[in-house]
């Protein structure tokens, strides 16, 4: 009975530690790979770190305000062998403003100048794994930089 009690205490601690470690690795990845992709020589990181561990088949929505007359760069990256990550930038009515798969060429970043003030959603999608494969889990990070005129 004592062993069972110990098990009750140890297992959740173990899994909690595992989750914390996964998040930590995710944030490290976002900072190293994300900053490089953002091109911080041109774009100033907006100061926010949007990252989560996701599995193939998951989606993530990042809500963010964009202000008129500013240039932005949105970068979406994934780690741990997740080769395909798609994203759309949509407004609150889910109208598509940018699609990373449009024109048959997949891209992982978008540079644009916001012509007006708008709250937009960066909607990230990890396609499902093939039915014969186990879904992979890895860190997905969305980073935004701005540039002043």
């Amino acid at each position: 009975m004592k062993q069972i009690k110990i098990l009750f205490i140890i297992l959740p601690i173990f899994f909690f530690g595992l989750i914390q470690d996964t998040n930590g690795q995710c944030l490290d990845f976002a900072k190293t790979e994300g900053f490089a992709a953002l091109d911080t020589a041109i774009y100033i990181p907006d100061g926010r770190l949007n990252s989560l561990p996701l599995s193939q088949g998951d989606n993530l929505d990042v809500y963010k305000p964009f202000f008129r007359g500013r240039k932005y760069k949105v970068v979406v990256i994934a780690a741990n062998g997740i080769s395909e990550v798609n994203f759309k930038v949509v407004n609150f009515q889910r109208k598509v403003i940018f699609d990373s798969q449009a024109g048959g060429k997949k891209v992982s970043e978008w540079e644009f100048e916001s012509e007006r003030n708008q709250n937009l959603i960066i909607s990230v999608e990890l396609p499902e794994a093939k039915s014969s494969e186990q879904p992979k889990t890895g860190c997905v990070a969305v980073l935004v930089g701005f540039s002043q005129k």
């Binding site: 809500y63 759309k88 007006r116």
Partner: peptide
Amino acid sequence: STLNTDTTSVSENKNVPGI
């Protein structure tokens, strides 16, 4: 948005682990 390049509707996200 004035930036609209496409008017395709995005379906609701069915499997959103986080916003």
